[in-house]
């Protein structure tokens, strides 16, 4: 790449990043986890309460377990995203420039933030599981 639109970043990894074709999908990984967790909660409680396939208390405890798994996955993805953002070593928060490295870190930054909101959403969904009981 010959474009030199800005000074090199403090610790620029002087290598090319591949096109990261999958990374737009990666952005959606954590909110998808939130969504699947929500659907799982809703479907399981319906199956317990409307279809009475299993006791609701079992469903509730199982879903709390699922929440822990979902949160664990989101945190792991979030941590990977923080590493990609690389803010801890560079201290550079924003990436408005036109190099492959800027794009790479920007995607890390966006994925970090999206992981945070997905984690908050998952915690919110878990609250009724912790606070309520039964099929009323």
């Amino acid at each position: 790449m010959t474009n030199q639109e800005h000074e090199p970043l403090p610790d620029e990894e002087r290598r090319e990043f591949s096109a990261e074709t999958g990374s737009l999908w990666r952005l959606t990984l954590t909110p998808l986890t939130w969504a699947m967790h929500l659907v799982l909660c809703y479907a399981t409680i319906s199956l317990a309460c409307a279809r009475q396939l299993f006791p609701v208390e079992v469903a509730r405890l199982g879903l709390i377990g699922a929440s822990v798994l979902a949160l664990g996955f989101i945190c792991w993805q979030g941590w990977r995203a923080v590493r990609q953002w690389n803010v801890l070593t560079t201290g550079v928060l924003t990436h408005p420039n036109g190099k492959a490295e800027d794009r790479h870190r920007f995607l890390g930054h966006a994925a970090t933030l999206i992981a945070v909101i997905s984690a908050i959403g998952t915690v919110y969904t878990t609250l009724p599981l912790l606070l309520l009981e039964g099929c009323r």
Partner: peptide, 18 residues
């Protein structure tokens, strides 16, 4: 069931953040 309503109430509050 109240718990089902709770999931959606929680999500409805969460959307305020973004």
């Amino acid at each position: 069931p109240a718990m089902s309503l709770g999931f959606f109430s929680a999500a409805s509050e969460a959307v305020v953040i973004p």
